[in-house]
Amino acid sequence: MPTNGDAELRVVPVRHVGRWVGAVVALVAVAMLVHTLFSRVPTGQVTCHVVQGVRRCRPVVNWRFSWNIVFHYFTTRTILDGLVLTIKLTVMAMAVGIVLGVMIAIMRLSHNRLLSSVAWSYTWFFRGTPVYVQLLFWFNISALYPTLTLGIPFTAVTFLHINATTLFTPATAAVVALGLNEAAYMSEIARSGLIAVDEGQIEAATSIGMTRSQTMRLVVLPQAMRVIIPPTGNEVISMLKTTSLAAAISVTELLGAAINIYSANYEIMALLIVASLWYLIVTTILSTGQFYLERHFAKGSLRTPPPTPLARLRGDLVGIARTIRGSRGLTRRGATS
């Protein structure tokens, strides 16, 4: 076997031809996308100027994606109000969903068969019907119950009467519908988190005299969070977009606001882009928040926490710099023939 002692042996990396072809195709596709996003199209009109006595005409062009109109409406009052309402709806519906979902999950795990069947039925019902139908249902609830009454069940004793139409404004109906629907999904997420906690943790908590509720609050839930957080983050992002359905029951959240504007000026595409851009911005912020939340709740379960995106970027840059600087070969020291 030929060797050259302590000298450096050049390492020839494996060529990945398929990977390169794929990368080139992807690059072309991205270039086409960027090109069409920022292309201009003739409007059919012509502008003419008289320059030094000569009349010159040229066709008027406009952004294909109407970026000027997008930019104009991006921060108008109506859109921003809609955005705020979208965030409010998301927060409230998720709050209802998480609190109720955790309760249903705990009920589902109860040793009492009645409690666990009620929890199971809830999930069955609310997961089994479309959220859009549920939204319309709560919006029209006053057709079923014109007045809501607080009192002792099955007796004539009542304390409070509320007119259903005044209580169930479109926004309230949206929060109730989205929240109750979300609770069904959150209960399954919470349940998976709760059963992921080791039985021994519960025994240990019990053995130092914690009550069931203390065990749940101080030992089980904090550890279940690690399992619960990532899918819950997805649910929040999903909810942010699902609130757009509320536009159908005349709630002027982000999409509703965009629809209101474009039904007056017919700039449909531009306003849909405005709404989409805002959704993208908020989901990006939420994803970042989710990352740090996951990191927080991973404490104790990982010996070293995962790097933050910034740290990873720094690591990548260091790696690239090292590659550029050389040291491409592996040194074979002390190799003798």
Partner: peptide, 13 residues
């Protein structure tokens, strides 16, 4: 009554 388990069962979080 204190109890010590085979698998320690320390609160991981």
């Amino acid at each position: 009554i204190g109890m010590v388990f085979q698998r320690f069962n320390l609160f991981a979080h």
